[in-house]
């Protein structure tokens, strides 16, 4: 816990604070807001074959990291029928915005467990978000694979 707090960038820490300030049911509503806010990826921004499937998630979710600059951009795509997965993706897309490569690589994989969502969402479902973080970090550390 102290390790996570030490390396967590301000953007992710403020998302964490927002969740923890709420009761269990309201945390789910906040996750729904994130889900609603997941930005649409305009056609042509990410080549079809550059999307990576996050197999840790039960629903079809795809991510792509554009690491061409030192402020990488994370793109995510998940269907409306998978709002929990969309919510997780949206937290990362928003929370990683403006961070540099090293800051993203330092985000701990247990960040999802620090949002107080276990009770409302269940641990099993949270593992999907850890899978997204891991894949985003791997795309940045092994750019050739993307």
């Amino acid at each position: 816990m102290s390790d996570s707090a030490a390396t967590l960038p301000q953007s992710l820490r403020s998302i964490q604070d927002d969740f923890l300030a709420l009761g269990v049911n309201d945390r789910l509503q906040l996750l729904l807001e994130f889900s609603d806010e997941l930005p649409e990826v305009p056609d042509g921004i990410v080549p079809e074959d550059a999307w990576e499937r996050v197999t840790e998630c039960q629903s079809p979710v795809f991510i792509h990291v554009d690491g061409a600059t030192d402020e990488p951009t994370v793109y995510a795509s998940a269907p409306a029928e998978a709002p929990t997965t969309r919510g997780f993706a949206s937290i990362l897309v928003q929370g990683f915005r403006g961070l540099n490569t090293d800051e993203i690589l330092a985000v701990p994989l247990d960040f999802p467990q620090s949002l107080g969502l276990e009770e409302a969402v269940s641990l099993l479902r949270l593992r999907g978000m850890a899978g997204m973080i891991w894949r985003i970090q791997r795309q940045l550390s092994q750019p050739a694979a993307g």
Binding site: L32, S35, E81, A120, S122
Partner: peptide, 22 residues
Amino acid sequence: NEDVLLYDTGHIPGAVKIDWHT
């Protein structure tokens, strides 16, 4: 539902949610 938030994105009027997991 399988997805714990799907109900919250819109549901049949008056329906209540029961989540299998939680």
